[in-house]
Amino acid sequence: MAIDLKSLKKNQSYSAIAPVSELLDDLNELAVMDKDAEHQLKHYGTLRLGLIVGAIVVAFLASLFLFYVGLIALVGLLGAVIWVSIQRAKYVGLDLPDERYQFAQEITNLLARDMTPEQLVQLDVGFRSALAAENKTNSQPHPKRSGWTLDSYQHDWFKVQGGFADGTRFSLALMEMFQHASGYKRSASGKRKYKSKTKSKGTTLDLQLFCPRKRYGALDVLRNDAEKAVQMLPGVRLKRCRVTPKGLAITLLLPPDATASMVRDSLIKLLLSAYQVLNLAQQLSQKSKPPKKSKKRKRNGGRIGA
């Protein structure tokens, strides 16, 4: 599937609905593009720097010796600097954060283990900075510093939806949360300086599974105990575990210093935890015989505690 470069540059995000193989191809292509963009940026950056240095040297020499010739050379060099800058700008939008598409590749591969090859998957990966304006969710005066504002950001840069081979539909979302405090600070000398500080508030990992009732009909029975089946890495908190007859939703809160590998490990644990519950539900659901009447019920005339 061809990647729309214009859209990628403009929105700084990749979004597609396709089979896993195509998504992985796209992500590989993104990786190649990113490497190429990094190379070109470095190349044009070095070239621009050289031209600027050359322009300064020419300007200096022209002022001493050949003014007009030097002026023409200077204009030429400045033109070259502008052209190089334009060329470089073409690749700025294609320089993507490596960890984002690498994470997407890893997770897509992980989920693909239990998917059929033709299963369509919707993948959304955002490459914008977490502190982009559209990610701001709240802005309020700083509770402790007068004149400062405290902005909250939520950046859900990774979302994948699809279906497993057992008929279960899944939705997995990763959201980073930040707080950005900014304001003016007066130094001891009386100067006012603009200061800002960004603090991570953690990452949430949200997994929702919508299960086929024929296979996992007994899921509701495990409603009260499902939470105990969730295993987590140290430092990770269970934010939510909700089981309904139709599926389950688990949300983990990862610590602010969570690395990409920690997120991946937490996700594997999360998936295994969810399926530890589902597999037991399947065990309880697979029996299709009618229940036997107990002897006690017969003794009580079939009363069922009404």
Binding site: R213, K214, G217, A218, D220, V221, P245, L284, S285, Q286, K287, S288, K289, P290, P291, K292, K293, S294, K296, R297, I304
Partner: peptide
């Protein structure tokens, strides 16, 4: 003891419940 009634789409009363 668990019995999932696929027609009704729910877990039915079982011996365990009776107890």
């Amino acid at each position: 003891r668990y019995y999932y009634n696929r027609d009704a789409g729910r877990m039915d009363f079982t011996e365990a419940d009776a107890a």
